[in-house]
Simulated scan of single mutants.
Amino acid sequence: MSTNYPYYPARALVDLAAIRSNVRALAAHAAPVAGRSAQVMAVVKADAYGHGLVPSARAAVRGGATWLGTAQIAEALALRAAGLTGRILTWLYAPGAPLGDVLDADIDVSVAAPWALTEVVAAARERGRTARVHIKVDTGLGRNGLLPAALPAFLAGAVAAQSAGLVEVVGIWSHFAFADDPTHPTVLAQADTFDAAVRLAERAGAHLEVRHLANSAATLTNPRMHYDLVRPGLAVYGLSPVPDLAGPQAYGLRPAMTLEASLATVKTVPAGSGVSYAHAYTTTQDTTLGVVPLGYADGIPRHASGSLPDHPGGPVRVGTGGAARTLAVAGRVCMDQLVLDLGPDAAEQAGDRVVLFGDGLDGGPTVQDWADAAGTISYEITTRLGDRVPRVYLGQD
């Protein structure tokens, strides 16, 4: 929490036991195909998808992950500083990155362009260490990575550096464009391109330990793509990367985060009262409004604002037990708060707990419900959760 003050009227409960269980489930999905089992890299980038970098990484390792993955170098270094000792891969940086620090911390580093190899080799020479590198190939996503046509010349330079003892080319990898649609023709086409890249690297003399292509979706739905290592991210936190196919429970996953808050103001207003900015919502009867002290500064999407009758807002669970009900956000989501229309017979009081999302097992809203309300994906809902919302960790060993 950026303010370093212990009180906040909302909190994100993160169940580390769920993360451990999810990783075990993912390892089972990566179980032997043709007699070979893939290792699991738990991707903990973006502060572990908003769940908290170090606690989530530790839980993933205890669940059986043998690798950790971060996009940013700073997160990889933070994992080492926290005492995590297993294999870590980091992959997204620009020229001038502190690659010497990466090598000193025994972190594997991706190379996705000739300049990156040049800088990794320079860092290895300066620090007197051999860099462990993974070559990133753009097999069709059109994002980071070497195009296949550039791979032969790049491999010649990489293997020469390997012969000089400056690098070990230990991995080759890529990323899908349509993994959430397992039958999409690009999935097999990318795998074929990746296979060709692997053959090129092996023939060139790379010392490959791992070949990896599968993200969460491919880990759960496409065993053909598992190779030596799978890289689940979203699924580690118990969310389905393929919600159009099945929810988390179908894959043995349990959502790890519950976002809750305490009601602030509760008051009665007459029919015809405008609610929040621009009065996008107007009460249709005498009713009770409840203010939830979370807003877009906390990561609550403004696109999940609600108006009547055409656009219900994001869902919020109020009450407990048999009296619990799910209501939609009424009016615009503000910077620090949102409003609920609790109805004319509301029994809620200031201080009562409300849940924006959880595991949904009690019929309450989920991260996917909020994604649907905001017209986005579940990845965005948890990763955008602001750092001023405290993370409270449950299920610690």
Rank of each mutant, 00 (worst) to 15 (best):
V230N: 13
R231P: 06
G233A: 15
A235T: 10
V236F: 09
V236W: 09
Y237Q: 11
G238R: 09
L239V: 14
L239P: 08
S240R: 06
D244M: 06
D244G: 11
L245Q: 10
L245C: 03
Q249K: 14
Q249S: 09
A250V: 00
L253G: 01
P255G: 09
A256H: 05
M257P: 00
T258P: 02
A261S: 12
A261G: 12
S262R: 12
L263E: 06
T268I: 05
V269T: 02
P270D: 02
P270I: 01
G272R: 00
S273M: 03
V275K: 05
S276E: 11
S276K: 02
A278L: 12
H279S: 07
Y281L: 01
T282H: 03
T283R: 03
D286K: 02
T287D: 00
T287H: 00
L289D: 03
P293L: 05
A297P: 04
D298A: 11
G299A: 05
P301V: 01
R302Q: 14
R302I: 13
A304W: 03
S305T: 08
S305V: 00
L308T: 09
P309G: 11
D310G: 15
G313P: 02
P315Q: 06
P315E: 04
G319C: 10
T320S: 15
G321D: 00
R325S: 07
L327W: 08
A328N: 13
A328V: 06
V329T: 11
V329D: 04
G331S: 04
R332E: 06
M335R: 15
D336T: 12
Q337A: 15
L338T: 09
L338S: 06
